[in-house]
């Protein structure tokens, strides 16, 4: 019975992915890709990866979806959304795709069995200070990866801002939004943010022990800001405002300072003394979530554009 569920889910995933690649029109491709992301988050639950399911639903389907749709809107303004005719099958490319997919399938069949039990992880987990093993990996065991990842987000944002036009540099971020007063978007913009804010903060807080964490919670908080901005209820900020700069660097900075503090004590860089490990991780997660929320919202909303109402 569960195998049937998995099979149906996989067929739906492949169907929506195929529609996103081959379907007529870029707009349809975007819609199918969003549906694909939502289906995939169900798949992650089936793979016992609830942390990943939350990240997929929030980032893979949610924010990527908004990003692609707003980009489509910007392309329509310069009438660049039309697609050239690529309907015929490109045989050499199809052969390459089949070969890579086949090689991956073969790799799966010869993958060695993982060695069980993972004694080192089981032994280290109780000392990490958090119950959620994924959070322990992200914030403690492989904290280097996460620290550098938060810097990657900043680098991407700086790259994106550099694409802004000189004459728009002083303007507010993103294209101006006009929502009809009393319309659906305005109503959503009033109802969703309080609920979303609560969910986002809860996800960050609960991430220490249950599925959730800084990335999932931060993304929900970013979505709260985006919904309010899309509904025209709040005005996006400008690049030069120092409060937002502080928000952008808060997470990486706190993370880095905690790492240096560990190096100065005898826990080593990015190591935390066992007695305060849980608290340290919670503080870092809270700061990271705030920065992730601001950075992701700015990444999705895009460089500054003219035409904002003042």
């Amino acid at each position: 019975m569960t195998l049937l569920l998995d099979a149906v889910l996989c067929v739906l995933l492949l169907g929506t992915a195929l529609a996103a690649v081959l379907g007529r029109g870029v707009f349809r491709a975007i819609v199918f890709f969003i549906v694909y992301g939502l289906l995939l988050s169900v798949g992650w639950v089936r793979l016992e990866a609830v942390n990943v399911a939350l990240a997929e639903a929030a980032i893979g389907a949610g924010l990527t979806g908004i990003l692609l749709l707003t980009t489509y809107g910007k392309l329509t303004r310069v009438s660049a959304e039309a697609e050239p005719d690529d309907a015929g099958v490109n045989l050499p490319v199809a052969l390459v795709s089949v070969a890579v997919a086949g090689a991956l399938a073969w790799a799966w069949s010869v993958l060695p069995e993982p060695t069980r039990p993972r004694a080192e992880l089981a032994e280290a987990l109780p000392r990490a200070g958090v119950e959620n093993p994924v959070t322990a990996v992200l914030l403690s065991f492989r904290a280097w990866d996460t620290l550098l990842e938060s810097v990657v987000l900043l680098a991407a944002l700086i790259g994106l801002w550099l694409l802004g036009r000189d004459e728009d540099w002083q303007q507010r971020l993103g294209v101006p939004q006009h929502a009809r007063p009393g319309g659906i978007m305005t109503s959503f913009g009033r109802v969703l943010p309080p609920v979303g804010f609560l969910v986002g903060v809860y996800l960050v807080f609960i991430g220490a022990d249950e599925p959730g964490g800084a990335f999932q919670g931060g993304t929900v908080l970013a979505a709260v800001g985006l919904v309010a901005a899309l509904a025209g209820l709040i005005q996006p900020p400008r690049i030069g405002q120092w409060q937002w700069h502080a928000g952008l660097v808060l997470g990486p900075l706190v993370f880095l300072l905690a790492g240096v503090a560990g190096a100065l004590s005898d826990s080593g860089f990015l190591g935390y003394p066992e007695a305060i490990a849980g608290t340290a991780i919670l503080v870092i997660e809270a700061a990271l979530a705030a920065s992730i929320a601001v950075t992701l919202a700015f990444l999705v909303i895009g460089p500054p554009e003219k035409g904002h109402r003042e």
Binding site: V52, L121, V134, L160, L299
Partner: peptide
């Protein structure tokens, strides 16, 4: 949990690259 943490990192980096 290690691959799961790497996948979450990957999803976030994919979004910033897409942006």
């Amino acid at each position: 949990p290690v691959p799961q943490a790497l996948i979450i990192t990957g999803i976030v980096v994919a979004l910033s690259a897409s942006a």
